[in-house]
């Protein structure tokens, strides 16, 4: 892994996303499916940056997507008369990242001091807690949510607003997915990744080796949260042009993130892509043939993976290609 070959695994990742995008553009009527798959890959990749790399589960993860959605919604609904043009979307993304980073710092300040199970307990109510804060204190229009399709049209014009929510929002999701993959690989190949590997394996031993574990946990937590914020801003806010608290703080998205990461292989670069594609495609077909049964079928599969194949698909593949020339592409 020395020298220029260090970042080679990004090649298959980019190829996978490029193929997916091309398929969506070329095959008629498949754009929604492709957009959904990109969303799941991005979700998995962002979630993996924390759960996969540190071995801590954040059951309140969807809260970061939720506040990101609000970041975009609040920006567009309040600045639509400012004549900012497309700049408003940039500001919206910025706000999304800032909102989720702030929430991550607040939650992390308490939760990241805790180990193992206590961390999970601290995070399990974050999404519910934040939802009820918004509803209870009537922040950002409280339980009514924010509908900003009108504002988006004011800011960008009718036609552009339409294109943004039907096409560019999905392209941004691809962007988030690629960004998350690049960051994952960068972390894996640098000191951050080795620090996270060490603390995931044995936190006490990691400290003794001179690793400031809290610092690296915070880095992973905030990166993962900020990416979730961007994902919420693109995949939800821009696409749907409304925010409704019970929807964006729904714990099922955390469940989906867990499934995707475990399916593909926690802590790997390509796992979340494999997991996202498999989960997305199966969910798509299950939704057609057996609507409402996805979780009933996926929940026992999570258990089966944990008990029988804890390393996930890419983990198994990594074992298979070990010592071959393909090794440097698969991580």
């Amino acid at each position: 892994m020395r020298g220029s070959g260090k970042y080679l695994p990004i090649v298959p990742v980019l190829a996978a996303y490029a193929l997916l995008l091309l398929y969506g553009l070329a095959a008629p009527g498949k754009w929604q499916l492709v957009a959904q798959l990109a969303f799941y890959c991005a979700l998995g990749q962002a979630f993996n940056l924390f759960m996969g790399m540190t071995g801590y589960v954040d059951f309140g993860y969807v809260a970061f997507l939720g506040v990101g959605t609000y970041g975009m919604a609040v920006t567009i609904s309040s600045l639509s008369d400012g004549g900012l043009g497309l700049g408003i979307i940039l500001i919206g993304f910025l706000a999304a990242a800032v909102f989720s980073t702030i929430l991550a710092m607040a939650v992390g300040a308490v939760a990241l001091r805790l180990r193992g199970a206590y961390f999970a307990i601290a995070t399990i109510g974050v999404n519910e807690g934040f939802r009820y804060l918004i509803e209870g204190a009537r922040i950002w229009n409280g339980a009514d949510g924010i509908i900003f399709s009108r504002h988006l049209k004011t800011a960008l014009g009718r036609k552009m607003a339409m294109t943004v929510s039907t096409f560019w929002a999905d392209i941004f999701v691809f962007g988030v997915a690629v960004l998350a993959a690049v960051l994952t690989l960068y972390y894996l190949r640098n000191k951050v990744g080795y620090a996270l590997l060490a603390l995931r394996e044995d936190e006490d031993a990691a400290k003794v080796m001179g690793i400031d574990v809290t610092r690296y946990k915070i880095i992973a937590f905030i990166t993962s949260a900020a990416l979730a914020g961007l994902l919420g801003a693109s995949g939800w806010a821009l696409k749907l042009t409304y925010v409704y608290p019970p929807d964006v703080f729904e714990i099922h998205y955390t469940v989906e993130a867990i499934i995707i990461v475990l399916l593909g292989g926690a802590g790997t670069l390509m796992g979340p892509i494999a997991g996202g594609l498999i989960y997305g495609v199966s969910k798509y077909f299950l939704a057609i043939t057996l609507p409402g049964f996805q979780l009933l079928i996926f929940a026992p599969i999570i258990i089966a993976i944990i008990v029988i194949f804890p390393e996930g698909l890419v983990g198994i593949l990594k074992g298979k290609v070990h010592g071959t020339s393909l090794e440097k592409f698969v991580i």
């Binding site: 519910e128 807690g129 204190a137 409280g142």
Partner: peptide, 12 residues
């Protein structure tokens, strides 16, 4: 405020 929702926030 909405006391019901705030109570749930409070427990969190």
């Amino acid at each position: 405020g909405e006391p019901f929702a705030l109570t749930r926030f409070f427990s969190f």
